[in-house]
């Protein structure tokens, strides 16, 4: 059996893990509230722009804002939105697993957002073609990412979706599909008198230029929305991981406390036995 002092030292270190995980859990819970609030605020903005887009783009194929004569790379670009560092639970591992299942070297190029995802991808023996840090600020400049997306015939985005505090999902969607589906929903019967056409609206500089601009805006907003959603899922996953780690360390500390008490009692018992044995010897010698 280990000495009580050794057990006590281990228990102290486990107790400091409890404090650390508890602090990280509180921090994650604050981040969730903040991020969730921001996602809700931004959703109103996105919805209004979507609404205009739905009514203006009724019959035009989405083409990532490319010019008609521009030839795209005939590959599918996989865009991965991952955490900037560890401590996000298993959410990045799940995302990488999904990417590995989909990945075909001859058909795909990979763009990674977030350092943690890039590391995990390397461990899965997949080299990324492009890399970006996960943006930390509210305003996300996705223009460099859009310039790359525009070069490819197809783009698929893998992101982390927040469902609830205890549940986060990994999703993948075809970027052109998700954007063009918004346009397709706006058929004449659904938009009615709200239809934005040259008959009902003045466009400046021209209807074509406004529609092309809006198409780019929608792509920009879609990517931003996925990044915000992933950020929220990541902090929720971190909260979940920290809660689990805290519970585990509390249980460990309780076990170590029990072991310490046993070891201490055992030591006292041994000393008592030794004293009694010594006493018996003295009495036997004296008699």
């Amino acid at each position: 059996m280990r000495r009580p002092l050794q057990i006590k030292a281990e228990e102290d270190s486990v107790r400091s893990v409890v404090s650390l995980t508890s602090a990280l859990e509180t921090l994650s819970s604050m981040q969730i509230a903040k991020t969730k609030n921001k996602v809700l605020i931004s959703n109103q903005f996105f919805d209004e722009v979507w609404n205009i887009y739905k009514q203006i783009r009724v019959d035009v194929m989405f083409n990532f804002g490319r010019k008609i004569d521009e030839k795209p790379i005939e590959k599918e670009l996989l865009i991965l939105i991952t955490a900037k560092a560890g401590l996000s639970g298993d959410i990045d591992n799940r995302l990488i697993k999904k990417v590995v299942d989909h990945y075909d070297e001859t058909k795909n190029d990979v763009l990674v957002i977030g350092h943690h995802g890039a590391l995990k991808l390397k461990q899965a023996h997949i080299d990324h073609t492009y890399y970006f840090d996960l943006p930390e600020h509210d305003y996300i400049n996705v223009d460099p990412l859009m310039d790359i997306t525009r070069k490819y015939a197809k783009s698929r985005i893998f992101y982390q979706h927040y469902i609830s505090l205890s549940q986060q999902d990994i999703k993948d969607v075809d970027l052109s599909e998700v954007v063009s589906s918004k346009g397709r929903t706006a058929d004449l019967s659904t938009v009615g008198k709200d239809l934005v056409t040259e008959k009902t609206y003045i466009f400046e500089p021209s209807s074509y230029q406004v529609a092309a601009y809006l198409e780019n805006s929608i792509l920009r907003l879609t990517i931003s929305q996925f990044i915000y959603d992933s950020r929220l899922a990541q902090v929720a996953s971190r909260f979940k991981a920290m809660s689990a780690a805290k519970e585990r360390s509390i249980a460990n500390a309780a076990e170590l406390r029990l072991e310490f008490n046993r070891a201490k009692r055992n030591l006292v018992d041994t000393r008592l036995k030794e004293s009694l044995a010594g006493l018996k010897k003295i009495r036997a010698g004296g008699a």
Binding site: I202, F203, E204, V210
Partner: peptide, 18 residues
Amino acid sequence: NATGPFDVLPRHHNFLCM
């Protein structure tokens, strides 16, 4: 906008511009 400076006043026609 690209066309030049402009003003929007009440009762303006439906308008969409960059």
